[in-house]
């Protein structure tokens, strides 16, 4: 089950906590993986740790040329692209009344528009090969909303809507498009929370703990696998029960 040998995967934001865990998990199931991110030294360190079946392609998703170059580079290095994981994302939190145009634009550009462009580049090859898995890492706040994150939650909700529409367009070509919506996951980002913030978050999580990046990676492996061929247009919520949708 969930064997990915012979499959080629591209993971954006592979230097982040969740992205790294996804890349490691896909690789462990046998996939060849292209790691993308902004920090080249970190990409190289992860690549050398994983060993063979690994490529790297640095990309800055706020730069459109860099975005458009990503999929062709990955396809060339791996000879195709079967699994695309749009994981890269940024936050620029602010209360709505103070939200600046730049904060809105940057978050929408990287989290939503870059995802659109990367999907568009990848879909052609997947159509030809009559197979493909597109997985977007969205967020629970894309469904529930979150004070201070109008930009981020709008972008993440946008990813869900886009995935559903794309899923309908390409389902007949054996391509699935799904999203994973993590709740609060223990990463460098959540390590910065103070004790009080942490307690208040956990008060809303029935599981009583933060999730781990590996628990998101497990969901990604499933959606990437042949076993998930009949699952498309869905959002898989991995959140310890904090929102049951």
């Amino acid at each position: 089950m969930f064997n990915l040998e012979g499959k080629s995967a591209l993971v954006t934001g592979a230097t982040g906590g969740i992205g790294e865990a996804i890349a490691r998990a896909l690789h462990a199931q046998g996939a060849t993986v292209t790691l993308s991110g902004t920090r080249e030294a970190k990409l190289e360190a992860l690549a050398s740790d994983l060993g063979d079946r690994v490529h790297i392609k640095a990309a800055n998703l706020s730069d459109r040329e860099s975005v458009d170059a990503l999929v062709p580079a990955a396809e060339e290095m791996m000879g195709g692209l079967d699994i695309l994981v749009n994981n890269a994302g940024i936050t620029r939190d602010n209360i709505f009344m103070r939200m600046k145009d730049e904060e809105w634009d940057q978050v929408l550009e990287v989290n939503l528009s870059a995802t659109f462009r990367i999907c568009r580049a990848a879909i052609k090859g997947m159509m030809k090969r009559r197979q493909g898995r597109i997985i977007g890492i969205t967020s629970v706040v894309g469904v529930t909303g979150n004070a201070g994150q109008v930009n981020y939650s709008a972008a993440k909700a946008g990813m869900i809507g886009m995935s559903k529409s794309l899923a309908q367009e390409v389902a007949s070509r054996k391509i699935t498009v799904n999203t994973i919506a993590p709740g609060f996951i223990s990463t460098a980002m959540t390590d910065e929370l103070n004790e009080k913030q942490r307690e208040s978050i956990l008060g809303n999580v029935p599981a009583g703990r933060l999730g781990t990046a590996d628990e998101i990676a497990g969901a990604a492996v499933y959606l990437a696998s042949d076993e998930a061929a009949y699952v498309t247009g869905q959002t898989l919520h991995v959140n310890g029960g904090m929102a049951m949708i």
Partner: peptide
């Protein structure tokens, strides 16, 4: 419409 895109490809 998807068929027409594939035909062009």
């Amino acid at each position: 419409s998807l068929d027409t895109v594939e035909l062009v490809m």
